[in-house]
């Protein structure tokens, strides 16, 4: 019963964040535009050779998701800081983890929606056809995004309230994402192009392990991060 009430609180925060985003759309449009720009620019840097582009596609896709997605997290707290809304959120009764759960869900949905636009675009620019194992590719995208967004939501809670928030968030977040980037890129690449060694499975397991560890740790440290 109590747990259902807490989940309701998380849901309320999710709904609030989504409503704010739906009404302004400023954040989504600029992040998607940024993602398209990054995809184009990697193309310029890598050259027009179709084979080279295809083999780089998985890495480029994940870097695009990381570089554009990171722009969204600070903003999710910036909305709260304007007008001291965060203070009021913290004054509401209930557990602090619900705040994290709501913010996490909102950021996850946001990044998934960015991916809905970015991934087909990456497929077109980098000459990657829809893979046979598309279900597994979606699974990798899901796991990688969960790891990325979980840590992004924790670190943005700190970075957004510090001085120099634009620099601090990537500086704190990206070193933490090395395993996600490696595992997600390897798994995606294996599933998109070919997987002669049958490695995709072990990368997916590493990604899942990473997610479990950091989702649990994030729920544990977040109350200490958000208070005061």
């Amino acid at each position: 019963m109590a747990f259902a009430t807490e989940l309701g609180r998380a849901g309320a925060i999710l709904w609030k964040d989504l409503t704010a985003e739906r009404r302004t759309k400023a954040n989504f449009n600029s992040v998607v535009a940024m993602a398209g720009l990054i995809l184009l620019f990697f193309g310029f840097a890598l050259g027009p050779d179709a084979k080279g582009l295809r083999s780089a596609a998985a890495g480029v896709l994940w870097l695009t998701v990381l570089f554009s997605g990171v722009l969204a997290f600070n903003r999710s707290y910036q909305l709260e800081l304007d007008g001291n809304a965060l203070e009021q959120l913290l004054l509401y009764p209930g557990e602090r983890w619900t705040l994290f759960a709501g913010k996490l869900a909102a950021n996850l949905l946001f990044v998934f929606l960015v991916e809905v636009v970015t991934i087909p675009l990456a497929g077109i620019f980098y000459h990657v056809a829809v893979p046979a194992l598309w279900g597994q590719v979606l699974g990798v995208l899901f796991l990688g995004t969960v790891g990325f967004v979980t840590l992004g939501t924790v670190y943005a809670a700190m970075a957004s309230r510090s001085r120099a928030r634009e620099v601090l968030l990537p500086l704190l977040l990206f070193p933490m994402l090395v395993p996600v980037l490696i595992a997600a890129t390897e798994a995606t690449g294996a599933l998109l192009i070919d997987d002669p060694m049958g490695n995709a499975g072990s990368w997916i397991r590493l990604l899942a392990t990473f997610d479990v560890i950091f989702v649990v740790a994030s729920f544990w440290v977040f109350p200490a991060v958000i208070e005061g």
């Binding site: 840590l151 924790v154 670190y155 700190m158 704190l172 070193p175 933490m176 090395v178 395993p179 490696i182 595992a183 590493l206 392990t209 990473f210 560890i213 950091f214 740790a217 994030s218 440290v221 200490a224 991060v225 208070e227 005061g228």
Partner: peptide
């Protein structure tokens, strides 16, 4: 509080980075 959170998450990450 913040640096403690960063310290713990960073410490958890290093073995995973090594493995990956």
């Amino acid at each position: 509080r913040w640096s403690a959170a960063v310290g713990i998450l960073g410490a958890l990450n290093v073995p995973i980075v090594y493995m990956s």
